[in-house]
Amino acid sequence: MRLEPIKNPSLARSLLPPASALGVTVVIASLLAMVAGANPFSVFGLILEGAFGSKFAILETLNRATPLIFTGLAVAVAFRAKFWNIGAEAQLYAGALMTVLLGTGFLPWPGVVILPTLALFSILAGATLLLVPALLKTRFGVDEVVTTLLFNFIFLLFISMLLEGPLKDPMGMGWPKSARLIPEARLPRLVEGLRLHWGFALAILSAIAVWIVQTRSTLGYEMRAVGLNKQAAAFAGIPVNIVLVKTALLSGGLAALAGFSEVAGLKGSLTLDLSPGFGYTGIIVAMLALLHPLGVIVAALFVAGIFVGADSMSRAADVPTYLADIMLATALLLMVLAIMLTRFRVVRD
């Protein structure tokens, strides 16, 4: 077999493959639910209800989507330029670390001053962390996939070292946990009485900002050009390495905001279980969004909904929550295939 580009894809050509991808994902998940001895219809019903069925459920989904929007944007920005940042997890923790370093009393400022400062320094921390793999790539040609992946392990151990050493809360009853943020350094709630903080608004604003940068600025144009064809971009006079480094800084900064928003908006202190893999899930979010910054918001809500829904489904139907991870991994693989099939035809020879 071989692949042949389709000149003018029909409407059916553009819609059918992605729709089938989602359909097949649902079928596979249903089969797996049946293996676990559950009725697939009630499993999906429970997931939907757990994700969007009540005011509490919706707020929980929005809260869970917030860090995923940030990490999804971080991945989308990087992947668009074919810079494979798989280290959003570490950059998230870099942001969280900066937030507790400065926000637990070191800067005794009022909220309007300290919150932007914390956000800014978090961005700097995440950007700096990703600068190392970026420079290793541009200077030495070291593949960034492996370095960013390995950085996740190194940085988490580093955080663990700090939490059991200098950063350990003396009032923490011996748990490896940082001191709590001062009240001024906490992100206020969007609406009084509703458990949703300003981090969510910041995430939406970031997505819009990234979209504007990508579509309206020279940097956005250059990032796309580098991603499409490095040689051609270099030939057109685009400084490829500088664009890659700028992309890395932007991507690392966005991922770090997830850490800032989780600590300042939700948790109030830093622990080793701050992120249940938000950095890795960001990759799924970005791919499902086809790397579009505004699509990231929708994809993050979808993914967060599946996770939150699966949590409550698991309690009710006795199906392991890992069903959610399987669904997302399947959806990711099938969606990549489906997108390709909207543009190419498989020809037998």
Binding site: L32, D325, I326, T330
Partner: peptide
């Protein structure tokens, strides 16, 4: 996915890692 369809080896590889890990954990729990 990567050979005849020529899809991104980065994305497919990470997807396979996620799928293999999560289905293993699912099977373990079952």
């Amino acid at each position: 996915l990567t050979v005849p369809f020529g899809l991104s080896q980065h994305v497919v590889g990470l997807g396979v890692t996620l799928l293999a890990t999560s289905s293993t954990y699912y099977a373990y729990r079952l």
